[in-house]
Simulated scan of single mutants.
Amino acid sequence: MTVPGIPDTPNGPDAPDAPDTVLAAGCVLWRRSLVHEGLEICLVHRPKYGDWSHPKGKLKRGEAPLAGALREVGEETGHDCAPGAPLPTLRYRANGRPKRVDYWAAEATGGVFLPNREVDRLLWLPPAAARARLTQPRDRELVDALLDALHMT
């Protein structure tokens, strides 16, 4: 996927993956706020890393990225969702290996969170609060991409 403002170079979003690239996918999960106008974004806390992030995870062998993203949302948050627009693909190094994470906007359609071994806490926050709570700056950019995709900027 080409990201506006990012040139399509050998290191850009459409660059071929190295053979050892970890493939993952996730969603910026959102819902209409239950207490105020606007929307809320779901963040998950992963105790293994001590961080706050969007729900995401590694793809299973042969799994399509969108299917993996929806599976990970369900596993980590307990919520079902309706996928929407694709969001920027993030590329970075994790544990010494290149990693590619494909993201989609996804509206929560129901479900209940139960803490599990991967995710012990979940928060629904307005966009500004979600942006501030996210651990990685690269994840903050996805909040802006979601708002752009929903025409809320």
Score class of each variant (00 low, 15 high):
Thr9Ala: 15
Pro10Ile: 03
Asp14Arg: 15
Ala18Leu: 15
Pro19Asp: 14
Asp20Arg: 07
Leu23Asn: 10
Leu23Arg: 15
Ala24Asn: 04
Gly26Met: 02
Gly26Val: 00
Arg31Gly: 09
Arg31Glu: 11
Arg31Trp: 07
Arg32Thr: 15
Ser33Asn: 14
Ser33Asp: 14
Leu34Cys: 10
His36Ile: 12
Glu40Tyr: 09
Glu40Met: 09
Glu40Thr: 10
His45Ala: 15
His45Gly: 13
Tyr49Met: 08
Asp51Trp: 14
Trp52Tyr: 05
Ser53Pro: 02
His54Ser: 09
Pro55Tyr: 04
Pro55Lys: 02
Lys56Ile: 04
Lys56Gln: 12
Gly57Glu: 06
Lys58Phe: 06
Lys60Met: 09
Glu63Thr: 02
Ala64Lys: 09
Gly68Leu: 06
Ala69Glu: 08
Leu70Pro: 07
Arg71His: 10
Glu75Met: 13
Thr77Leu: 05
Thr77Ile: 02
Gly78Thr: 03
His79Trp: 09
Cys81Met: 09
Ala82Phe: 13
Pro83Trp: 14
Pro83Asn: 13
Pro83Met: 14
Gly84Phe: 13
Ala85Asn: 11
Ala85Phe: 11
Ala85Cys: 11
Leu90Asp: 02
Arg91Ala: 04
Arg91Lys: 13
Arg91Gly: 01
Arg93Ser: 12
Asn95Gln: 14
Gly96Leu: 02
Val101Cys: 11
Tyr103Cys: 00
Tyr103Asn: 02
Ala105Ser: 15
Ala105Asp: 06
Ala106Lys: 07
Glu107Trp: 14
Ala108Asp: 11
Gly110Phe: 07
Gly110Cys: 09
Val112Phe: 10
Val112Pro: 02
Leu114Thr: 15
Leu114Asn: 13
Pro115Asn: 06
Arg117Pro: 12
Glu118Ala: 15
Leu122Phe: 03
Leu123His: 10
Trp124Ser: 03
Leu125Gln: 08
Pro126Arg: 14
Pro126Asp: 15
Pro127Trp: 05
Pro127Ile: 04
Ala128Tyr: 05
Ala130Asp: 06
Thr135Gly: 05
Thr135Arg: 05
Thr135Ser: 15
Gln136Trp: 07
Pro137Asp: 10
Pro137Gln: 08
Asp139Glu: 10
Asp139Cys: 09
Asp139Val: 01
Arg140Glu: 01
Arg140Tyr: 01
Glu141Asp: 10
Leu142Gly: 00
Asp144Arg: 07
Leu146Lys: 12
Leu147Lys: 07
Leu147Asn: 04
Ala149Tyr: 01
Leu150Thr: 10
